[in-house]
């Protein structure tokens, strides 16, 4: 589903080069639920931006859904984001002056669906997250958990192959967080691949597979399928790669 090979990302200013990712490699299979963890400044955000095709990288290759997307132009990447990737953000990133319906509508508009098709998909997605009764509400009229569910509905409405969640419960209390996680697990069991970035070890623990990023390097704690213990928590760190 997702294959990153030897990806590096270097930020250059006039005088300094900063390596946000070094030789980062990761493979996520179809249907997996992977948690990517790491402390602040470890390169999580960069990984997220690259995986979500929001940002270019300096070297390496990135294959998404068996397609090499390393050298695509901006428009092509926009199209892939629109068709194959669903985003869920910590701060929900709903558009404040659009109601639930219109927020879920945003990616579908760029997809070029007909009005009827969009309506059908929006209703389905909103129903899936249990907010049908709030269809005409503005984000400010919803609780945090509800807002995040709208964001999930928006991510799902385009039927993406791959969900990218960034601290999806970071702004929620534990009860709401639980609900959102349960929803993500349901979605995953229905076949959608999920990559979740978080710094929360407990949350990461609920994912079948954990990957830790540290200072731009990656440690895949479940790389060895025959070592089920390692899949529970990042007990020790080893550097993978060259």
């Amino acid at each position: 589903m997702l294959e990153m090979h030897h990806i590096s990302k270097v930020y250059r200013t006039d005088t300094v080069e900063t390596h946000a990712l070094r030789d980062f490699s990761l493979r996520v299979e179809e249907g997996e639920f992977v948690a990517v963890t790491g402390p602040s400044g470890s390169g999580k955000t960069t990984f997220l931006n690259i995986a979500g095709m929001l940002e270019d990288f300096t070297s390496g290759t990135y294959r998404l859904d068996a397609e090499d997307v390393s050298d695509l132009g901006d428009d092509a990447r926009s199209r892939i984001r629109n068709e194959k990737i669903g985003f869920i953000f910590q701060s929900f990133n709903l558009i404040p002056d659009l109601n639930v319906f219109d927020n879920v509508d945003v990616p579908l508009r760029y997809r070029g669906f007909t009005g009827a098709e969009r309506r059908r998909r929006i209703e389905e997605a909103v129903e899936l997250v249990g907010l049908t009764s709030r269809m005409r509400h503005l984000p400010s009229q919803l609780s945090g958990g509800q807002q995040q569910r709208v964001a999930i509905a928006r991510a799902l409405a385009g039927a993406p192959r791959f969900l990218l969640a960034d601290e999806p419960t970071g702004n929620l209390d534990s009860e709401m967080a639980d609900g959102v996680m349960a929803l993500l697990e349901d979605i995953n069991s229905a076949g959608t691949t999920i990559v979740m970035v978080t710094h929360d070890a407990d949350l990461a623990g609920r994912a079948p597979r954990n990957v830790q990023v540290l200072d731009g390097w990656v440690q895949d704690t479940t790389q060895a399928i025959d070592s089920p213990v390692a899949s529970q928590a990042p007990a020790e760190l080893a550097v993978v790669g060259s």
Binding site: G52, L54, D74, D75, S78, R79, R81, N82, E83, F87, N93, L94, I95, P96, V106, P107, Y110, R111, R154, G158
Partner: peptide, 16 residues
């Protein structure tokens, strides 16, 4: 800009 960022993430091209 933040709103534009969301639209971009959701697949709006630069042209759009």
């Amino acid at each position: 800009a933040p709103q534009i960022g969301i639209r971009r993430a959701l697949g709006a091209s630069r042209g759009a």
